[in-house]
């Protein structure tokens, strides 16, 4: 290490130490927040799953349904809803989601964005991409109304024909140490594998008609999927931050250890030198 002056080393140790205190505190905070976010995820998951299942069932059971939401025409303009956090210091969480969306885009000029969280907003604005709407300060504690607003905006654009596909990019909470960004197509809805199933599916009654029901159910589906994505991303964010802060703390500890060693060596060298000088001086006086 270049610093050999004991005072400099000491100062450096102190600075690393105070940084470590911050990262440790942040780690604890995100651990607590992660717990809350996971609880929330467990509560909302049934809703999210039931809605998705219901939509899949309806679309799978009835092949005659013709609706613009399930059309399979060619996709020209895509609207991306990208969920990131407002704050950094969470490892690759934000950048992974931002990149994931970009990977999917064939022609950046035709893509439109609704961004959630400051990180994505700033990133796409810097790239001069078309950000049509942004939602800030909701990513940490998303509420259902937020999802409703986002869905409304997306559906309005879809209905007006400004875009012909809507995709959601969120971070899937695989485990506390692994979060994977995912792109999910919201609209038009892919009919899925259910179509391949044999014809023996039950006859289901739709009141008043399958089209009417779908007209109602699909916006719900979009809302709930966005909500599910928000909730899951919130948990992922905390998990990512916890891991990032944990490794930062570990790293700080390592640096401190190394610096302490260097400090002790330098101190020892100084003492040895002093003793040599004293002995030398005494010797000369004889």
């Amino acid at each position: 290490m270049a610093v050999s002056n004991t005072r400099d080393i000491k100062r450096k140790i102190r600075s690393v130490n105070s940084t470590m205190q911050i990262t440790k505190a942040m780690e604890l905070v995100s651990t607590a927040k992660l717990k809350r976010a996971r609880n929330r995820m467990d509560i909302t998951k049934p809703y999210f799953e039931t809605v998705t299942e219901a939509v899949k069932d309806i679309l799978g059971a009835d092949k005659s349904i013709k609706l613009k939401y399930v059309a399979d025409k060619e996709i020209q303009n895509t609207l991306y809803i990208v969920i990131t956090s407002d704050r950094g210091l969470c490892g690759g969480y934000n950048i992974n989601a931002i990149k994931k969306a970009l990977e999917d885009i064939a022609d950046p000029k035709k893509a439109k964005f609704i961004t959630i969280g400051k990180r994505a907003t700033d990133a796409y604005n810097r790239m001069n991409l078309d950000v049509v709407d942004t939602f800030l300060y909701i990513s940490e504690q998303p509420e259902y109304v937020h999802a409703v607003h986002i869905a409304k905006k997306a559906l309005a654009m879809f209905d007006a024909g400004e875009v012909d596909a809507v995709k959601l990019v969120y971070t899937n909470f695989a485990s506390t140490i692994s979060q994977v960004p995912v792109t999910l197509q919201l609209l038009p809805i892919e009919k899925g594998e259910q179509v391949a199933k044999d014809e023996a599916t039950d006859f289901v009654n739709y009141e008043p008609s399958p089209e009417e029901v779908l007209k109602f159910v699909i916006p719900k589906y979009v809302e709930s999927t966005i909500f599910g994505g928000l909730i899951e991303s919130a948990a992922s964010e905390q998990a990512a931050r916890r891991v990032a802060m944990e490794s930062a703390s570990d790293n700080a500890e390592e640096i401190i250890e190394e610096l302490t060693l260097t400090y002790n060596q330098a101190r020892q060298a100084a003492i040895t030198q002093e003793i040599t000088e004293i002995v030398g001086g005494a010797e000369a006086l004889k």
């Binding site: 219901a54 289901v204 739709y206 009417e212 029901v213």
Partner: peptide, 19 residues
Amino acid sequence: RTTEGDIGILFDHEPLVAP
């Protein structure tokens, strides 16, 4: 209460989807 009016559901109701 569905958009078409109140409906009562008993055991073994036929499969149905309604807003």
